[in-house]
Design a protein around this nucleic acid. Structure first.
Lengths: 161, 161
DNA sequence: TACCAATATTGGTATTACCAACATAGGGGG
DNA sequence: CCCCCTATGTTGGTAATACCAATATTGGTA
């Protein structure tokens, strides 16, 4: 890795954050990593990963949708969605059929088994969140979620949903 | 991927979270991803990635330290640290010399250039955090950081630092 | 001395996010 | 109607990350 020479003058920065350990980006990254691992640990017992759950939930909430819709809604690359759907179809959790109105599109719909499985998987999410937020009071949980949602809205590129 | 059959009875779960979009794990993951990308975008102009910054900061704060110390302090795998240090040594940002007191260990120390570069890189972090937290009031920023730190402390396996 | 633990290093793997290319199909303007 | 442009789904590849296994060297210790 070729590191570029540092040539800028920096004598008046003064904004050096004392306690770099507590930077927001750092904390976000570690918290996300741990929560993700904790959730995946539960999902793996059901043979799924987080995107399987996210796609199931999206199809459940939006009714029969096209893959492009799911992709946009979840900010999941279309090519990655294909693999996830292959798994979900194999498991019998969703159906994927061409849209008769527009034969480019596939309509993805939740099956009975998919709906039942989704309720199972929801438990994993609830358990993980309870574990993570065990030390927080209920109003603090709401505060954290609210603050994170606002950060995400601000960081969103341009009016995506 | 072989998905296990869902056989458990779920009739009394009732904890299905309405608004799955707003689950903590989901929000954490997306926020971390976006903030990480925003930071990396700035770091890449200096030819570094986040671990280079983290290691530089750790060496700066802890004085000359062994690689094992850095590894534990940052929860960074020792093998990954080797590569990061190779880059930092090549760039002249740190020195890595055997500890005369214990020849298994390497002592990593910040150079003048490393210290100057670190101050440069700090600007990237400050800019990224300002961008992410632009919509939050100062006390909300502190609240978010505080809540995240508490979540992380709770999720920490066992007395690490 | 002989065994065990710590350290640094090499190499490999799995996951994730993303990108490029492509074939197919729709829609719209000439 | 034909041509162009876009949207869609699909395949394949890449970079970064996190982690794990094996090893050589060294320290400490029973």
């Amino acid at each position: 890795m070729a590191m570029r020479d540092v040539h800028c003058e920096v004598e008046e920065v003064g904004a050096t954050p004392r306690g770099r350990d507590h930077g927001l980006v750092w904390l976000l990254g570690r918290a996300a990593l741990r929560s993700h691992q904790s959730l995946q640990e539960r999902f793996v017992r059901h043979g799924i990963r987080k995107w399987h759950y996210a796609v199931l939930a999206a199809v459940d909430e939006a009714g029969p949708v096209t893959q492009a819709d799911i992709s946009r809604r979840l900010s999941l690359d279309g090519s990655d969605l294909v693999g996830v759907l292959n798994d979900l179809v194999s498991a019998g959790y969703v159906t994927r059929n061409p849209d008769p109105a527009n034969r480019r599109r596939n309509l993805v719909a939740l099956t009975e088994e998919g709906a039942a499985a989704l309720r199972e998987f929801d438990v994993c999410v609830v358990e993980t969140e309870d574990e993570l937020l065990a030390t927080l009071a209920p109003d603090e949980r709401k505060q954290l979620v609210s603050l994170l949602a606002r950060v995400l809205d601000a960081a969103r590129p341009a009016g995506v949903e």
